[in-house]
Amino acid sequence: MPWSWVQKADNNSEWLSAKIKEWTIQQETWKQQLLLEPEDLSSTVDMERLFETFPMIGGLDITPDKEQDDIAYVGIVVLSSKSLQVKYCQTHCVKLQVPYVPGFLGFREAPALINAVECLKREKVDCFPQVLLVDGNGILHPRGFGSACQVGLSLNLPTIGVAKSLLSVDGLNTLQIKEQICEEGKRWLPLLGSSNRVLGAALLSNECVKRPIFVSVGYRIKLLEAINLVFHTCRYRIPEPIRIADKISRQASSRDFC
C-alpha cells in the first residue's frame, strides 16, 4: 500500500467514511446531469445511420499492477465502427490516487481513463472516437452512476458501460437472468429492477456464448443504440474495443512500463 494510503489508513474508518459521503453526494449530483430519456425498446435501429453518427468507436480497460496497488495500465483502442479495423492502440502506465471501494470504482479508475482519452485527442485527433465502450457500468449501478457515466460526463462524450458480471442493483438476480435468457432463447433481455425501471440489458453476444454480458447507458446514448453497437462489435463474448484494450493493458502489466 502506498505511503499516502498508509497514513490515511491510520484513521481509516474516519477517512473512508468521509470519502464515501463525499463521493455519494458527488454521484447523486452528477446523475442529475445525465438527462436520461424514456426508452422505447420495441423500436428498430438503423445501423447505417448509427455508423454515420459514430464512425469511430473506442474501448477502455484498465489492469492493476500485480505488485503495486497504486499502479495500473490503461488500454485504449479505437476501431472503425463499421469494419472494426483498428485505427489506434495505446497503453498508459498510471498512478491511482485512491484505493478501491465497492460502488465507487469510478473515483479510482475514471481519472486515468479520462486522461488516456485526452492524450489521444492531443496526439492523434483524426482517430478520436465519437463513442466509448468502458469496461464497467453506466446507470446499472447502486446509485445510477457508474464509471462509464463518470467518463462520459467528464469528456462530454457518448459512453456505454459493458460489464462481465452483474452488480446487485434494484433486486436484480444474476442466476435468474441467466436462466431466463437461456430458457427464452433470446439474444438479449432488458434488465428491469424492482422499481420497474430499465437499467440496462443482458446480452448473449454470439451464438456460442452461454454467459451474458451486461450493457448499460453511460452518457448521451440510447440503450437500444448501445445494444446494437455492442452486438456489432462482438466477435467473441466481449466487444472488440474492450477485448483489445484489456489484452494490451494486461500485456503492459507484465512488463515495466514506468
Rank of each mutant, 00 (worst) to 15 (best):
W15I: 02
K21Y: 05
W23H: 01
I25W: 02
I25T: 08
T29S: 06
W30K: 12
K31R: 15
Q33Y: 09
L34R: 04
P38T: 04
D40H: 07
S43D: 01
S43F: 08
D46W: 04
L50F: 09
L50E: 01
E52F: 12
F54M: 09
G58W: 07
G59K: 08
D61W: 07
D65M: 07
K66R: 12
Q68I: 12
G75E: 00
L84M: 15
Q85G: 14
V86F: 10
K87E: 13
K87D: 07
C89H: 14
Q90P: 00
Q90C: 12
T91M: 06
T91P: 01
H92K: 13
C93T: 09
Q97G: 09
G103S: 10
F104S: 08
P111A: 10
A112I: 12
A116D: 01
V117Q: 09
L120A: 05
L120P: 03
R122H: 11
R122Q: 15
E123Q: 13
C127T: 13
C127E: 11
F128Q: 02
P129C: 03
L133N: 04
G138P: 06
I139C: 09
H141E: 11
H141Y: 10
P142W: 12
P142S: 04
R143S: 04
G144N: 06
G146I: 11
Q150T: 02
L153Y: 00
S154I: 05
L155A: 08
L155Y: 10
T159H: 01
A163H: 09
L167H: 08
L172E: 02
E179D: 14
E179V: 09
C182S: 12
P190V: 09
L191V: 04
G193K: 01
S195F: 03
N196P: 01
N196H: 15
V198A: 07
V198C: 15
A202I: 02
L203Y: 07
L203M: 06
N206Y: 09
C208H: 15
V209C: 14
P212I: 03
I221H: 06
I227R: 03
V230A: 03
H232I: 11
H232Y: 12
C234P: 02
I238G: 05
P239F: 08
P239V: 07
E240V: 10
R250N: 05
D256P: 03
F257N: 10
